[in-house]
Computed example of a mutant assay.
Amino acid sequence: MESKHVLVSKVITSLLLCVGIVWGSYYLGKGVENKGRAEGSIAVKGLGSQDFTADLIVLEGYFSVENDDLQLGFAESSRQKDELEAFLVDLGIPATAITFQAATYSALDRSLYNDTGKFIGYEPYYQLTQDFEIRSNDVSSVERASRKISDVLDKGILINMYSPRYYYTKLANLKHEMIKKATEDARQRAEIIAAQSGGSLGELRDARMGVFQITGQYSDEDYSWGGSFNTADKEKTATVTINLTYESN
């Protein structure tokens, strides 16, 4: 009798063990299947772009004086500096927007020739140079003045001007707005991709900002890997990219 009970017990134990093995194998297989399946993701790039007009102009130049006597040269340089400043003020540029640097000088030699063109030696002289800068938020006034500034040559002032440089003083605020636009653009792209593929957008995995670029609106200037910062044009375009990676459900 006891042998019969033992036999039944062994049969039941064997059946339970088989069922356990079957169920264990099933769940183990599902686990391996899920583990082997790569988790989906959607990587997108968003673009933020904004046209704007520079609100600060910087105009630089210099004038030079030559004299055989250094002291007289400095005196003449000072006189021309005062005359140039008065001329610029008359053109509508405030004196507070004009900055003159200290005059510098170089000791040079000029070649001398006789009446027959034969070289007879050198004569020492001094060349004094003074740099100046005009920096103003009144961009239009400085632009108008720059077109007339060469008239100072009629006063005997040997002036040389560089091309103006244009800046935007609210660049930090502009960057924030563009980052928002680029991020919104990237998310919209990701949502479209998820919807068209029959899924849904999951959590954000990664976000990276690309290079900030400023180029002239009407120029053929190329983007740079390190970022462009155009100062030659008054009318500019700023762009920034945002790279987002989302989980895909």
Rank of each mutant, 00 (worst) to 15 (best):
N34H: 07
S146T: 10
D69W: 05
S140R: 07
I159K: 02
S49F: 01
E85L: 15
Y246V: 06
S49V: 15
Q101R: 11
S49D: 00
R208A: 13
S49A: 09
I149V: 15
R205L: 14
I12Q: 03
Y122L: 09
Q188A: 10
V6L: 14
Q130D: 02
T237A: 01
E39W: 05
T231Y: 02
G210L: 02
E133S: 12
Y113M: 02
M178W: 00
K35I: 12
V142K: 04
Q217P: 04
A238N: 02
A97Y: 03
L56N: 07
M1A: 12
N173C: 00
Y246R: 07
A172T: 13
S49C: 06
Y125S: 00
G73Q: 12
M178N: 03
Y168P: 10
N67T: 07
R189N: 06
K180D: 15
Y246G: 06
T245V: 15
F229N: 13
L84G: 09
S219F: 04
L56S: 03
I179G: 02
E203T: 07
D131F: 11
A97D: 15
S64R: 08
L88G: 06
Y126T: 12
L204P: 13
R37I: 13
S49N: 10
L56V: 14
R205P: 03
I21T: 14
D185Q: 06
R135W: 00
S200Q: 11
S136E: 04
S200W: 01
L158Q: 10
I159S: 04
K155S: 08
S3D: 15
L112F: 01
E203A: 11
V19Q: 07
M209Q: 14
D154G: 12
N160L: 07
L72F: 07
L72Y: 08
L204V: 03
G36Q: 11
N173A: 06
L174M: 12
Y27P: 10
Y223Q: 06
T53S: 15
K81W: 02
V152D: 05
R147G: 09
I57V: 15
K180P: 05
Q188V: 08
V8M: 05
L204S: 05
R165F: 01
D206L: 13
I242F: 05
Q71L: 14
S77V: 14
I12E: 01
F63R: 06
I159E: 05
R205S: 10
V6Y: 09
G40I: 07
I57S: 03
Y122N: 11
A103Y: 07
E247V: 08
L112D: 00
S41L: 05
R165T: 14
K236Q: 09
L70H: 05
Q80D: 08
A232V: 10
G202F: 00
V139Q: 05
P94R: 06
D220A: 11
E85D: 04
D185G: 01
I149E: 00
S197G: 09
T237V: 15
V58A: 01
F119A: 12
Y167W: 03
G92W: 00
S197W: 02
